[in-house]
Design a binder for these strands. Structure first.
Lengths: 138, 138
DNA sequence: CTCATTGCAAACGGTTTGCACTGGT
DNA sequence: ACCAGTGCAAACCGTTTGCAATGAG
């Protein structure tokens, strides 16, 4: 059973309705693997379902993240993005040229446990964005 | 000479004009010590200068951060905030009750140098926001 | 059949822009 | 006197909302 099917079943079994809109948006997120803005999701999903509205994309993304089917994160510049699955990673963005580098969550694991210990919080942040100057621009 | 005066002189000596609006906005940032949203700056500054417009606040804050007189950062929920000085700190926000905890930059210093080493970037991020559950809500 | 979900259109909040006026240098 | 900086009003973009119609269960 594909991963999308797993989620589909969960949606139904939790008493929500599995609409074509939800399936397509899920597939878009799943297929891209990356984090997408609502506008990006809309653009892609629309190709399979021209009748889809942006409103529904917003509502569906909120629905998915509220119920743990997708994750929402604020990426640099304050844009909201969504992604499925647990591919935890972070970004470093160069302030000058705009290039991006991915940082695995493993590199932050120590920091996370140290912070959890010192603050008592249980951390769930799924995405951090660091800014700086890349080797080329510094 | 006060810190505001230092900046004032720098503004003039770099060929920019030192307007009452810029002085008041600088004082607001300096006095608060915290990071403020443009709207908050506007609200406070307006008390001393009722004729001040929100447009000017936006343009002045951009001017200040572009020229290194203030720092801009994206805080959780994608809001843009500004602050003066180098009071580097970060926040942990509880997803449930919304309470905030300040995290000193010292706790992240090790991570920063490790990241700089492994990526070659020179990091300048002035503010990170972590999300999680506070001791009370977890 | 019922109610969750959708589409449409309109409102919203934060931010940006064009343009004429003002005031710092 | 000149031009950087301001105020005003209107545009802009991403997001949210009210309401009637639809379609999944």
């Amino acid at each position: 059973m594909s991963c999308t099917e797993q989620i589909s079943n969960q949606i139904r079994s939790r008493g929500f309705r599995l609409t074509p809109q939800r399936m397509i948006i899920l597939q878009v997120l799943q297929h891209s693997g990356e984090h997408l803005t609502p506008a990006e999701v809309y653009e892609i999903a629309r190709q399979n379902m021209p009748s889809l509205t942006e409103t529904t994309v917003y509502r569906t993304l909120e629905f998915l993240s509220e119920n743990g089917f997708a994750m929402a994160a604020h990426i640099g510049s304050g844009k909201l993005v969504y992604q499925v699955g647990g591919h935890d990673h972070h970004h470093i963005i160069c302030q000058k040229c705009g290039c991006e580098l991915e940082v695995s969550h493993a590199q932050l694991a120590d920091l996370y446990s140290a912070l959890e210990q010192s603050t008592g919080f249980r951390l769930t942040t799924s995405h951090l964005t660091f800014f700086g100057l890349c080797p080329h621009c510094r």
